[in-house]
Design a protein around this nucleic acid. Structure first.
Lengths: 121, 121, 121, 121
DNA sequence: GTGGTCTAGACCACG
DNA sequence: GTGGTCTAGACCACC
């Protein structure tokens, strides 16, 4: 389910965080379903449990997980979080649009690009 | 011309690289114009010359600079580089669009967002 | 009567302790009335009986319960306990007031806040 | 400047976080002043650098610190943060007031208690 | 068994 | 020198 890319410059725990964030956002991991245990996932990926722990702590901080001592970690994606994620994405769109305009790419060019890609799918 | 934000988590040399990249892409620094010398810029920003050196080396690697031994560093922005930059940007757009669709945001919603923002400028 | 919040970071037994403490302090559970048995409550909440046992032991330690061997656990709220609880609360108020003053919030500001909230109820 | 209480049930890193939060909020540590380095503070308190690291990371997350790689950690308290802290405090006051009323303590009783303490200072 | 904290020791990037 | 990441191994509380 999770693959670590050791060529990737980003720290391992961050890769894990983002992989799980995607899985949760896409709904592949359903709310209230149990996450793999810190130890078992560490074994599976053959990395240190502390690294998984750090990743889970960050996911909890971001609201994608809640942990119950002695039980495990559980998925906690809800509508509030979904909207937050949506806003983040739209903010990125806006930033990118501004950058594009500075380079002299018109709004029409972007739109055209969108339509074009549509046909490749 | 260049301001370092110490609150920014990114390394200083990277901030400098991106600032100069923007200045060059926007045409504020014209092709073949001379860059400030490593030592003078280091003095001006009161940081280590090694940091400037590293930034310039990275800019050269990316093709935005060429250095002439004993004379200094010069801006090297051309059409090939501009197109490369353009493609990078459009690739980012596509990635973002895919991410948005996975979250269930429709193409129309993005377009609507664009129009809306247009009026705020 | 008791609801466990698994999103709550606190251990389950502690949540149970505090819920019962509130119920007893407010007088919803009357003195000398019988508590649900360890096993029945464990069943009802579908958690481990050990967890209930631990919660009851803690409640007894704090003076809110007394247990009769072979018969069950009974509520034990009295005036002495009520005064103790009152003092605890006032001590918290004082600590909070001190903290507020260190931040530069005046006594008047707090009082004003109190009045304001009164109207929202 | 910082003292660890090993009798305290709370984790060491959390004690450190709260101590520094207080020092920063009270203005004892001034904005943009340098924090002790991870290693030196670890030596001074004779605890592991990782524990300090964790504390500093949490302080950064809460906005009280910013860190510059290769340079150190710096205090980052500003007005926005001050207001946030203020709101937190007032929310606590409200919660406490509600709890007191459930116990049958009147607003007047609390006010009287405040005045009384005033004279002890 | 579970998560959470801590230590000891190492390596890397940054300046 | 600085902060940041990672490993290995230990201990605790909780269930």
């Amino acid at each position: 389910m999770i693959l670590i890319d050791y060529q990737d410059a980003r720290p391992i725990y961050e890769q894990i965080v983002e992989k799980f964030e995607k899985l949760i956002v896409r709904g592949i991991l359903e709310p209230d379903s149990q996450m793999p245990s810190v130890r078992s996932l560490a074994m599976e990926l053959s990395i240190n449990p502390n690294t998984i722990q750090k990743a889970y702590a960050e996911l909890e901080r971001r609201g994608y997980l809640y942990s119950v001592k002695g039980r495990g970690n559980y998925v906690a994606f809800n509508d509030r979080l979904k909207n937050k994620k949506k806003e983040e994405l739209l903010a990125k769109f806006l930033a990118l649009k501004n950058e594009a305009q500075e380079l002299g790419i018109s709004k029409e060019e972007i739109a055209a690009f969108f339509e074009e890609e549509e046909n490749h799918d």
